[in-house]
């Protein structure tokens, strides 16, 4: 890169961009290889499926967080909002005894409304995203406990409910490959989010907002509207996550949820999305979420204590961001 002609710069960007995507991905591959060599139990179909299943909830939440973070914002409420949506599903299905599709729609709608509210507080009242969603995180936590009477709501009366996450449509077609529906849903959400980010005006404004919000405003774009839309979309994705976790546990656990937002943000950051906005990919976030669950799973198989898993995850976050800083410095 001694030659600073523009074409040279272009290839420079491509290479380093690919390099970084490769970095997270090769990190994932390296982990898989290490754990496979360390334990014969790791590379078993059952274990791989368990890892994917474990990734589904955090993956979906991380995708929601990715959208918001690309705008240059942050959403701390994704974890407790997920729980709130699960509780709403519980109310609709168990308390009111309504049919399954209404529960699904209700949970996603609840997430959308709450996301819309956060977005409105941030865009219209100009409350910083960190504060607005910190408040929303506590509000959701409290409301989940209030609505449920602090007791778990079970879905025993809705037989199909556990199938949302644990059933396997693939398995019923190809008996040898029982990929759980939860994993399919994760991939479906990822595809949808990638499509929106890459192909639609909403996606384009998401990146533009994170890149230079004032430039977007001065281009005559209704910045508030698009920002609210992003938070609402993220909220609806949290609704999906709520369904996934409730289905997996066959219950809405109102005390659960806090702390999930940090795992989600960790996956986003490991996946190469910039916390200052304007840059990020859904694929990166998926890889980030997988790295976290592979790590947890592998260390458990090697009988490393849970406490140490947390320490390792923390180190990985710092390393991932440091690698990104090194890359940018070279540019």
């Amino acid at each position: 890169m001694t030659d600073t002609t523009a074409p040279g710069q272009k290839t420079g960007i491509r290479i380093s961009g690919a390099f970084h995507r490769l970095l997270a991905f090769s990190g994932l591959i390296a982990l898989v290889v290490v754990f496979s060599l360390a334990s014969p139990n790791f590379m078993q179909t059952q274990n791989i499926l368990a890892i994917l299943q474990a990734t589904s909830v955090n993956g979906v939440l991380a995708i929601a967080a990715t959208l918001v973070i690309i705008t240059g914002g942050i959403d701390l409420s994704v974890g407790t909002l997920m729980t709130f949506c699960a509780v709403i599903a519980g109310v609709i299905l168990t308390y009111w005894g309504l049919p399954l599709p209404l529960g699904v729609i209700g949970a996603i709608l609840a997430g959308t409304v709450v996301g819309f509210t956060s977005g409105t507080i941030i865009a219209k009242l100009k409350v910083p995203p960190f504060i607005a969603t910190l408040g929303m995180m506590l509000i959701m936590k409290g409301l989940s406990l209030v609505i449920s009477g602090t007791r778990p709501i079970y879905f025993n009366d809705t037989p199909g409910f556990t199938q949302i996450s644990l059933g396997s449509m693939v398995g019923s077609v190809i008996p040898g490959l029982p990929i759980p529906n939860g994993v399919l849903i994760l991939f479906a959400v990822a595809l949808l989010a990638a499509f929106i980010l890459g192909k639609t005006a909403l996606g384009r404004y998401t990146f533009a907002l994170g890149s230079n919000e004032e430039a977007v405003r001065l281009s005559g774009v209704n910045v508030d509207r698009w920002k609210i839309a992003v938070y609402a979309l993220a909220g609806s994705i949290c609704g999906v996550a709520g369904l996934l976790i409730a289905s997996r546990l066959n219950s809405a656990q109102p005390a659960l949820g806090q702390g999930y937002e940090l795992d989600a943000i960790a996956a986003v950051v490991i996946g190469g999305t910039s916390l200052s906005g304007g840059r990020g990919t859904v694929l990166g976030t998926l890889i980030g979420a997988l790295i976290i669950s592979v790590l947890a799973n592998g260390l458990r198989i090697l009988s490393v204590a849970q406490e140490w898993q947390t320490v390792v995850t923390g180190c990985i976050i710092i390393l991932a961001v440091y690698a990104d800083i090194l890359r940018r410095r070279k540019l």
């Binding site: 533009a208 005559g220 304007g278």
Partner: peptide, 23 residues
């Protein structure tokens, strides 16, 4: 500061005020 979304490419900067027309 105000005119250019520097992280976006040339194409998207040119289209930034007209995205509704390309939707």
């Amino acid at each position: 500061l105000f005119g250019l979304a520097t992280g976006l490419d040339v194409r998207n900067n040119i289209a930034l005020a007209s995205l509704d027309r390309f939707t």
